[in-house]
């Protein structure tokens, strides 16, 4: 028999064998489930904003009084959610909003806001949140010890860095996030880097 015939016969046998090997029915589902969880950073924001529209409950509004270093009357949002690594993440000041007393009332009644307050309550001093500066997807974030990741908007970071007691936001730096009575960040201060997360 010719080489060509042999090659064809081997190919046929291989194809016949392959036909009988069927992937488990849930395999494709499992692969795609993984793909659904993994999205590029831009999509993370788009879908996050989309989700924000759907799940209004995760949006909490806050405002800063005149005594706060932010020196602003605008309210800003704090959104409690998860990042792509499934770490609890609190997005601060994603959008500035106009001051409205009704919103203030809504914030305090919001379950997610209570959850956020409960999270920082676990710290010794909820006005002084110890954390480590990190950079994730080109965003500056602060891993607050035992609470989760705090992502501050660029505007907010810039604002805080212009405050008199600012700290340089360099990855790996130990800092304190200073919060007001409503849990909103008012300043970033230096912290002893030897003590990464106080026990």
């Amino acid at each position: 028999m010719s080489n060509k015939h042999t090659e064809t016969r081997l190919q046929e046998c291989y194809e016949n064998r392959k036909k009988n090997v069927i992937p488990p029915p849930n395999l494709q589902e499992a692969i795609l489930a993984n793909a659904k969880q993994t999205k590029p950073s831009i999509w993370k924001w788009v879908s996050w904003q989309y989700a924000m529209g759907i799940f209004v409950a995760v949006i909490i509004f806050g405002w800063n009084r005149n005594d706060a270093p932010l020196q602003t009357n605008e309210q800003y949002s704090v959104v409690a959610t998860y990042n792509t690594d499934h770490t609890t993440t609190y997005y601060h000041d994603v959008t500035f909003l106009s001051a409205d007393q009704n919103d203030v009332k809504n914030i305090k009644e919001n379950a997610h806001y209570q959850q956020y307050l409960a999270a920082i309550e676990s710290l010794k001093d909820k006005r002084k949140l110890p954390g480590i500066v990190k950079s994730i997807d080109n965003e500056i974030v602060i891993q607050v010890c035992d609470v989760g990741v705090f992502q501050l908007s660029r505007e907010m970071v810039n604002h805080l860095l212009h405050a008199p007691s600012h700290s340089q936001m360099v990855a790996g730096k130990a800092v304190y996030l200073m919060a007001d009575e409503n849990g909103f960040i008012t300043a970033i201060e230096n912290r002893d880097s030897l003590q990464q997360c106080p026990s």
């Binding site: 392959k18 090997v21 069927i22 992937p23 395999l27 494709q28 692969i31 795609l32 793909a35 659904k36 993994t38 999205k39 590029p40 831009i42 999509w43």
Partner: peptide, 20 residues
């Protein structure tokens, strides 16, 4: 784009070959 439809199509096309 990160759009699911693209990877879904690739998985559909190559899943069996790889699994085999």
């Amino acid at each position: 784009s990160g759009e699911l439809k693209y990877i879904k199509e690739i998985v559909k096309r190559l899943e069996k070959d790889l699994y085999h």
